[in-house]
Design a protein around this nucleic acid. Structure first.
Lengths: 401, 401
DNA sequence: AACCCTAGTTGGCACGTGCCAGTATTCAAA
DNA sequence: TTTGAATACTGGCACGTGCCAACTAGGGTT
């Protein structure tokens, strides 16, 4: 029994205890305090029910000694036909008598038969699986899972997922997916070295999602970051801004493409680019750091950030020192992950998970069938979302605090 | 080729086009506009490389006609031993000569052998899989995946995931997991009717995560919502509040347990409870609706919401009408999903994904091994996170706008 | 010389299914 | 009656692996 959890049991008062943590983001303070033994004598209504079940049922219909699941053979025996006929029914093959098929389906449902996917994939020449590796903490990939399912299903494939986490490396995940005999693999925001991917691409069809690769014989699907930032920059220029800074998270994957969009828009409009480069972890803290740097210089009239999270940290810092957004500074993000929250209401760029999933599955399937072998890159369309964090530039371009 | 995405090809200028959406949360306006043909003649640097690969490589080493992966037999043949010996090496079984084992491992690596998980699960009496069903849009379950992986691994099991989405119902997901011959299944925030779960629990070990069930012979793991809200209420009472409202999202799963914590704390302290019940979708909009209702009445000095999202909507609405938080109203949430953002800095309750995963896996494994059969409920500890959205009550308890 | 023991290796069977070839029955055409 | 074809069903084999029993070789004890 886990000691970190509580368990209801009969005739015992419920103990509620809660850890209390005092925290404050603003001043960077984080204190810890524990209150144990917060006690409560009130009865939990459903406890009575739980106890009733505990005592009422004494025997399980599922005996652990015989955990075998029914097979086609069991269904066949029950109906009095051959196993093969059951197989034909479950493959929806033609040439099975209607009444027999109905009887077989009924019997299967009755005894709870389900096809063994392992046996199917073993016997079949193809498993019909597509492997999908992703990082559990990657919020921008949130919406892509349902879209992947949908398009894989449409193409006749099943998704097998493998999550990368502390105890499960990217290599572990890939080994697992190959072990399941996936016919192709989608790597979402992979951090694996190129050399490893080159070898991997030679043994299994590969699509890299959210990370562009060079010299790897794989499909690459990514949102069109250069177009997104190009457009957001042009939008700000259109509002009259000329002193536009870009906050560049160096270590963020594919960050350089977004930067390129900014550089291109500035170049085309003959404006001088102003890039603040941030090393290390690129999130709220990185944005706050960028704000601190910009506050020591002449303040730009608009600031574009590599992603929403950094835009959050940056705009928070700017507000802290008393600046008004967008009256004095316009701020824009990228990703639309936190931008929509009403407190922020950030102008940002949103990627289209549906289009990304579609391109991914289509390219991967083409590789599985052998129609494609070479490297290919897809950039999906993005949308500029204009909210209230951007506006016309302030009157006085020179502003120092 | 998908028409929703763009594809790089040789000698063709890159076309950047971006959909532009003007939106504003504040006024509830959402307009759409499209700019197509945002054109750009700049060369993308890596395109040259991509093209080079395209023309350089003419033949694949992986011919689609012969997609067979190597088996134990292939490894054995290469080394000159029997297939069984290869099997023993990969099971880390004792009694294999060291030099032979090394040779086998080397040969396996050389030809890229990986055990076929389907064959293993078919032959073995147990598959060593634990099935995990979850909803892709469920943000509060975010942190639990890595923890699940970790504890499953520690218990000797592999996680097989199945995501519920538009094109993949809960039933589809469950069928899939049973098809993979998972030995037990974890249902996270399932919406399935009790009767179905009762039947399901009779054929396979089951743990329900984040939803408490009655009369189902399964494990139930949930964060201790009553304790969390009880404590947060007591904390507010401790600050001196007496007029504390609770915003109750009726349709949210397990919402009633959180409400219970509030009711209990009020009762114990002989205070009059004040509950605002919200039907339908319970998120930002629900919180804003609750705010509107409270604004027509005498304003409480503190408001507790069923979850962070509704607290966000509620506090946003309160700020809109000019109220100051926490000077005039204290606001608290539940979940710690969006509470940490500096603009909000909400006092809230955080659940412990590690403890939930541990309890889940341990209970499920006990059911798999047959040690447990009956219904059992685990409530994991929660932490009260005190931030700046709560403070002492305002001087004048009577406040109407 | 006959015996056992251990370390190292192999043979045979089974898991549940898909696929191909084959059989039995019926019914119409030659 | 024979032939042909269509319909409805069955037999046999294979997929890649785990497990059990059996085998061999070498060295020591009886």
């Amino acid at each position: 029994m886990p000691n970190t959890s509580q368990q209801f049991s009969k005739n015992k008062d419920l103990l509620w205890h809660v850890h209390i943590v005092f925290s404050s983001y603003h001043v960077g303070f984080m204190g810890h305090k524990r209150w144990l033994g917060e006690k409560m004598v009130r009865q939990i209504p459903h406890r009575a029910n739980t106890s009733r079940i505990d005592t009422m049922v004494t025997k399980s219909s599922r005996t652990p000694a015989e955990p075998k699941r029914p097979t086609m053979g069991d269904v066949a025996k029950r109906v009095g036909v051959s196993r093969q006929l059951v197989g034909l029914v479950f493959q929806n093959a033609p040439g099975v008598g209607e009444t027999t098929a109905a009887k077989i389906r009924a019997a299967a449902k009755e005894i709870g038969y389900r096809p063994n996917l392992a046996a199917q994939s073993l016997r079949r020449d193809s498993s019909n699986y597509i492997g999908f590796m992703f990082h559990s903490d990657h919020s921008s990939m949130q919406g892509i899972l349902p879209a992947m399912y949908k398009h894989a299903k449409a193409a006749g494939y099943q998704i097998v997922m493998s999550v990368v986490s502390e105890s499960h490396s990217e290599n572990d995940a890939i080994e697992e997916l190959i072990g399941h005999r996936c016919e192709g693999i989608v790597l979402s925001s992979s951090h694996i070295p190129i050399s490893r991917l080159q070898r991997l691409a030679r043994e299994i069809p590969l699509v890299s999602l959210g990370r562009r690769l060079e010299n790897v014989r794989a499909g690459m699907v990514s949102s069109n970051g250069e177009a997104g930032v190009f457009t957001i920059t042009k939008y700000l220029i259109g509002l009259g801004h000329t002193d536009i800074a870009y906050v560049f998270g160096k270590l963020m994957r594919d960050a350089e493409f977004r930067l390129e969009g900014y550089m291109a828009a500035m170049e085309v409009n003959k404006l001088t680019p102003r890039v603040v480069t941030i090393d290390g972890d690129f999130a709220e803290r990185g944005g706050a750091n960028a704000a601190n740097i910009l506050l020591t210089e002449n303040l730009p009239t608009a600031i574009i950030c590599n992603n929403d999270q950094s835009a959050l940290g940056l705009s928070h810092r700017l507000l802290q020192v008393g600046l008004r957004i967008p009256d004095q500074v316009s701020v824009a993000g990228y990703d639309d992950t936190v931008a929509k929250f009403p407190f922020l209401d950030l102008t940002t760029v949103r990627q289209d998970p549906h289009a990304m999933a579609k391109a991914t599955i289509e390219d991967l399937v083409a590789r599985i069938t052998g129609e494609k072998i070479l490297s290919e890159t897809f950039l999906t369309d993005v949308s500029l979302i204009v909210r209230s964090s951007t506006g016309k530039p302030r009157r006085d371009p020179n502003l120092r605090l």
